[in-house]
Design a protein around this nucleic acid. Structure first.
Lengths: 211, 211
DNA sequence: TATATATTTGAACAGTTGTTCAAATATATA
DNA sequence: TATATATTTGAACAACTGTTCAAATATATA
């Protein structure tokens, strides 16, 4: 009987890191197990040993950091006072991801690029996004409803949808806005983005959720 | 010498339609030429005859409708008066895509799902999105600057970035919000989304672009 | 009708894909 | 040290990949 402790195996972590980086760049089907193992410097058979199939490896890549992210988001949301403003609710939801990404940790940067792709993919969104991130999303919605007592539930959900779109494109780090703005705006300037994103989204929520 | 008139060949259009539908579902690498030709009911060698490589076929899929979309958006923007409100500018930019998608045309629905994925992909965004859509995007930015004379260029570009994120996630039609909201919100209800999206984004722009 | 051109067919090519497994090696336990 | 378990190795499998091409067929031109 084999007992695999993925979290403690440096080989397993090397595979996850390489898979994360390559999936973020080229997507699930754009990357082969040989790409991953070559990048990680390990044998081809090892992903199967630790994770089973390629699909299970993919899901492990997602779950490794979603657990951390969900905990941080949830605790930031529950730390809020009952009278919290929409600004602070949006900050609580978006800031944990942002802080991880701007820290310079290349793993988190790859992860956020990967999640952005998944969130906009018909194939993966329901299967992965819903499963991993909906509980925290519902807590965000619950807090926002308290903030706008007269808002209809639909309005709050659509507001969350717009927030999610703006946030995921930001974390996608595509570099398109750099080209469009002739390098006036930098995809990597997450602090500058954040300073504008929270007011932008707060005003948007107020516009559709206030009577 | 072979003279190929792609736009008039029903075979070429069948290939483009099938490629569009399958790429929208599974992405560039998730679809093989055999999937496409089987779906279209044509021989394997025909994509090469009409389009050359798989990559060139992919780009033809994108360009076929981006030409139409760009013309409609550009003419909607230039039809605006000089004193146009941010609401009307956002409408001019987003409405053409919306109208095509809600018309029930399955081809345009597939196309919008595909563009949403490309917009959030590091691999394709610069190569395809910038090339296809930046001229019209710059016209949007130019009109928005007139609307907010005291706004810094950076603020307008970032506003466009948030708009683009919200819009692409909407057109991605992932169905995630349906699950999250327990079917209270429907991804397919583009009219209901639009009614909220324009006010949401207008308020966002005002928040970061007004002094 | 005869000729030229456009299109379609069916097969083949070499390279890559995910997955499997017995054997070899390393590590921990007794 | 001896034994059991965990991990790594290297090769093999059949299926699938994008691309190519000569031959066959259809269509237009003269």
């Amino acid at each position: 009987m084999k007992i695999i402790a993925i979290k403690k195996s440096v080989t397993a972590q090397k595979i996850l890191d390489s898979a994360e980086a390559l999936f973020a760049e080229s997507g699930y089907d754009g990357v082969s197990l040989r790409h991953i193992t070559r990048h990680a410097g390990v044998e081809l058979a090892l992903p199967n040993y630790y994770f089973g199939t390629k699909l299970e490896l993919f899901k492990h890549v997602i779950e490794r950091r979603s657990e951390i992210l969900n905990e941080e988001r949830m605790s930031a949301l529950t730390r809020l006072e009952n009278s919290a403003s929409i600004d602070s609710i949006i900050s609580a939801f978006t800031e944990p991801f942002l802080r991880r990404t701007i820290s310079g940790d290349i793993g988190w940067q790859n992860y956020s690029r990967l999640v952005a792709q998944i969130a906009n993919s018909a194939r993966w969104s329901r299967e992965i996004m819903s499963h991993e991130f909906d509980p925290v999303a519902l807590e965000f919605v619950r807090r926002t409803k308290i903030c706008f007592p007269s808002a209809k539930d639909q309005d709050v959900f659509w507001g969350f949808h717009f927030l999610l779109g703006a946030m995921t494109l930001t974390f996608a780090q595509t570099g398109r806005i750099d080209i469009l703005s002739k390098e006036l705006c930098k995809t990597t300037d997450l602090v500058g983005i954040y300073k504008r994103m929270v007011p932008f989204l707060s005003a948007g929520f107020s516009a559709i959720c206030e009577a």
